[in-house]
Write a protein that binds this DNA or RNA. Sequence first.
DNA 1: GGGGAGAGATGCCGC
DNA 2: GCGGCATTTCTCCCC
Lengths: 236, 236
Amino acid sequence: MKGVDLLKKIINSKQTLVLFANCSVSYNGRAKSFLGKGDRLIIIKSDSTILIHQPVGNNPINYMKQDTQFEIKGSTLYAYNSKEYLDIELHEIYSILNKELKDPQKLELHGTEKHMSDMIYDNPDCIEKGFKPLSREEHTKYGFIDVFGHDSNNNLTVIECKRFTATLDAVTQLRRYVEKIGSLKGVKGVRGIMAAPNISPNAKQMLEDYGYEYRKVDPPEHYGKHRRDQVSLDSF
Amino acid sequence: MKGVDLLKKIINSKQTLVLFANCSVSYNGRAKSFLGKGDRLIIIKSDSTILIHQPVGNNPINYMKQDTQFEIKGSTLYAYNSKEYLDIELHEIYSILNKELKDPQKLELHGTEKHMSDMIYDNPDCIEKGFKPLSREEHTKYGFIDVFGHDSNNNLTVIECKRFTATLDAVTQLRRYVEKIGSLKGVKGVRGIMAAPNISPNAKQMLEDYGYEYRKVDPPEHYGKHRRDQVSLDSF
DNA sequence: GGGGAGAGATGCCGC
DNA sequence: GCGGCATTTCTCCCC
């Protein structure tokens, strides 16, 4: 089939490879899947990561991580490692593009939950007046705690923070920490505080059932508000 | 810059578009990020999803989901919706590939947690002799339960299943369900059983602390064991 | 390498 | 739309 010989040449060339093709895909590994005939975008990276994308959607429909081996037999591309198998039956290759890409950069990311717990640690008054944080990310056998300290009456206080809506899971997490701290330090009446910009109704209910408290705390910056004034509507 | 005019033409053409380019990327939306100059693969899908991939790694380094607007001004590609902004400064375009892809297929996926809870429902003896399942995915205000039923002594029994290793989170989930069922039905001594092929040591400890039980249950099929005999070592 | 938890998580289903 | 939760989650950090 047209393109297969070229594909064989470059498949292990440490270049990044892009393929428009009509194909069927089957996967067997952590789960099992089959995808019938259709046009897709197949990407093979220089670290042998393979991604198969349909023309719509955010995520690859099939994929395998780095350290994948490739073989082409007939018009089928086999990708496999020790535990997983991906078979791509190529019905037609529309085009192939390949290039050695050089990219030394790493992403700088801001506005994570870590930044939020740092903000609480540095500005404890946003929780309540007199709160004195003792540590960040206290490790316990039952998990680790975002922020941990004393309130103005010297009660041990555990804070769990979430960047967005606090869910049932977040409340059970908080509960686990409060109980663990209580048993570790041998005290009762450890306070639990959920710090988040929002909380779901059921999570709020559960929080109150356990005698814990909710504090509305916005993330360090409000990240949706940035306006790019340099883009005007008539830029075309 | 070379390629920019072609890019302007096809950027809103409902085709799937692939670009090898040297670029810098900044993002502002749910978080904030910056990525310095490097060679990347940029993908724009027919639903206006945009993905930026570095030459290594499984995941896109930056992305925006469908319903993104695009504008090109100078040599910068602006992608944005109502809440997020992605600016791609193009330093050099190496190549552009575009094609209308037609793909009507949906993925068939087997071997999920749903399949596992179905298996337990249909083969309750894999939990213990005499277990009688009553329902799958029982919805409660505190979450929904995988499998729920009576043991041979007519005790209410809640089962949480996991496809792989059961973690601390899984145990807190189980606990939440057991307590909710107990208070809903007004009974004590509701049993909690974690069904999974593995459990982490801390999760096991916590499970026992709460008086719950672990059952080693393998998924419906053992998915790592499939051998593709059609691939031989000398296929090149 | 395993455990624990966040993620710009994403995607699915249910209400 | 939000809520709850699985995911072939992935990734990072830390023991």
